[in-house]
């Protein structure tokens, strides 16, 4: 079960990197904000279609959950803006490492304390080792991005 979920999440990452490539190309033609709008609006349309035909009824609706649970997009959209602003000034290499660092720190914190209604998954030795491995991986991503920027 865990393996299946991990595999699914890896596929999610693949989708994300295809999306980044596709959107990068579109963004260079029509601008980043127009690209972001197109992505979200097409996403909303497709989700509505999927809901109409496939979603099972639930006891609770979006209107009844606590409002702070609906703030996800307010955390995701600023990311797009920050990246537009920062990548030109600090470079892709540093930006990539900084984003991943932020993601990991926050996700370890959420897991450890069970914030936002998530299950508690306490910090443990394997997790510390995993962070070390990721730090090494980040170093190599940084080195590879910097080499590419230099050669362009």
């Amino acid at each position: 079960m865990i393996l299946l979920m991990v595999l699914l999440a890896v596929i999610g990452g693949c989708l994300l990197s295809i999306q980044a490539t596709v959107n990068g190309r579109l963004g260079s033609q029509v601008g980043v904000l127009k690209t972001a709008f197109l992505t979200f609006s097409i996403g909303a349309m497709i989700t509505v279609l999927l809901i109409l035909f496939f979603e099972q009824p639930h006891d609770v609706t979006l209107m009844e959950v606590p409002k702070w649970r609906l703030l996800g997009a307010f955390c995701g959209v600023p990311y797009i803006l920050i990246m537009i602003f920062a990548v030109q000034r600090i470079g892709t290499a540093v930006a990539t490492v900084a984003v991943i660092f932020g993601q990991l720190t926050m996700s370890m914190l959420i897991d450890n304390f069970g914030w936002l209604g998530n299950n508690v998954m306490p910090f443990s030795w394997p997790r510390v080792l995993a962070v070390v491995c990721l730090a090494i991986a980040l170093y190599f991503i940084y080195a590879s991005n910097r080499a590419e920027t230099a050669s362009n």
Binding site: G72, F85, A98, V99, G102
Partner: peptide
Amino acid sequence: ILMVIAGGMGLSVEAGL
């Protein structure tokens, strides 16, 4: 850099929500 780190944290919060 701190802003970008905060942006990355935002992504995890989004996933957490």
